[in-house]
Simulated assay, not measured.
Amino acid sequence: MADSLAELTARGVSIWLDDLSRERLVSGSLADLVARDHVVGVTTNPTIFAKAISGGDAYNAQMSDLAARGVEAAEALRALTTFDVRAACDVLRPVYDASDGVDGRVSIEVDPQLAHNTEATIAEARALWWLVDRPNLFIKIPAARQGLPAIAACLADGISVNVTLIFSLSRYEAVMNAFLDGMEAALQAGRDVSALASVASFFVSRLDTEVDARLDKIGTAEAAGLRGQAALANARLAYQRYEQVLALPRWTALEAAGARPQRPLWASTSTKDPAYSDTRYVVDLVAPGVVNTMPEATLRAVADHGQVPPDSVREHYQHAQQVLQRLQRLGIDYDDVVQRLEDDGVAAFEASWDRLREQLATTLRATDRGAGHGR
């Protein structure tokens, strides 16, 4: 039987898990995925942590300690999440070492409420880098306009960065430019740029969800024929822009100094529409030097029935451009779509963080009262 995950790896796609919890760490589930299923990295976000922390008893002991110390909810949230990420970094450390720092990475996101505050984002990134204290960490910074200077500043400080919530091609170009700025500044400061790394998380399936809804409102046969094409077209054109950056003199100078490229990372790769294949945002985005971060259900689907081609990106640039042009002619405003998705993405993570912070405050008070009754 073909090992589709091994084939994906052989094509140059790094498989990362888009999930983390204390239960995965304690049970050995993450270690098993690394050992048996070609998983070489982990991404997290506020929604993932909200689900993990509210979903079981694995955090009770640490919560009890935090309550006994009178820790506020915001600090408790960082203590819980950095504990998990530090432990995951340790699980992935052999991969990091074996790949010479290319993979074996674990991401943790800055507080999403800071997405539109450059200085606060930089300060938070520095704090998280210090708290986790592992070389295979990525600090996730949203690609909002205010995040772009933070990306460059963090790289210049020697902090490896995962740029998240990228939806538009123009924003992706700005992100890659911020990466080049940061790496050049790091090099000028005398840093070892070969130890720095970055990925740019380009969100995929959410674009189809938004565009398909607009196409359905148009209701024509031409609109129906374009359903499910926007996301793949957008991602493929993003990879084309990545290749263009690799040809720039700015990049070749950095590469000569030992720098590594900012790899494209396909995020939001679970299929939202049941009419579509549950592997489409993996097998239709195969290209060398990319990361695909997927929830376990998608990973299992690829392992079970994914048909992995040699390359499903680079031969489709012309068609991808035609798709976006046809959408524009139908009245689908690309700029409006991607801005709405960015705004909604930041808002959704903020809401998850807020709910979790409120829940932790309640739990800490209850835990402290319970401990007091036992004294």
Score class of each variant (00 low, 15 high):
233 A>T: 08
235 A>T: 12
235 A>K: 13
235 A>G: 07
236 R>V: 06
237 L>V: 09
238 A>F: 14
238 A>R: 11
239 Y>C: 12
241 R>P: 06
243 E>A: 13
243 E>H: 10
244 Q>H: 10
246 L>I: 04
246 L>P: 02
246 L>E: 06
247 A>V: 09
247 A>G: 09
250 R>V: 01
253 A>I: 06
254 L>Y: 03
255 E>P: 02
256 A>K: 10
256 A>R: 12
256 A>P: 07
257 A>P: 06
261 P>F: 11
264 P>I: 15
265 L>P: 12
265 L>G: 11
267 A>W: 11
268 S>R: 10
269 T>E: 09
270 S>D: 11
271 T>S: 09
272 K>T: 09
273 D>G: 05
273 D>Q: 06
274 P>T: 10
275 A>G: 11
279 T>M: 01
279 T>S: 02
279 T>L: 00
282 V>P: 01
285 L>C: 06
285 L>H: 03
291 V>H: 00
296 E>I: 13
296 E>V: 13
298 T>I: 01
298 T>N: 01
298 T>E: 00
300 R>W: 02
301 A>D: 00
301 A>P: 00
302 V>W: 03
303 A>C: 01
304 D>Y: 05
305 H>V: 04
306 G>S: 02
308 V>S: 07
309 P>L: 00
311 D>S: 08
312 S>M: 05
312 S>F: 08
313 V>G: 04
318 Q>L: 12
319 H>G: 11
319 H>K: 11
319 H>R: 15
320 A>G: 13
320 A>H: 11
321 Q>E: 15
324 L>F: 05
324 L>Q: 11
330 L>Y: 03
332 I>G: 05
335 D>A: 15
336 D>W: 04
338 V>N: 03
342 E>F: 08
342 E>N: 08
342 E>R: 14
342 E>D: 09
344 D>W: 03
344 D>E: 15
348 A>D: 09
349 F>P: 13
352 S>F: 13
358 E>G: 14
360 L>H: 08
360 L>E: 03
361 A>R: 07
362 T>R: 14
362 T>L: 12
364 L>M: 04
365 R>Q: 07
366 A>E: 14
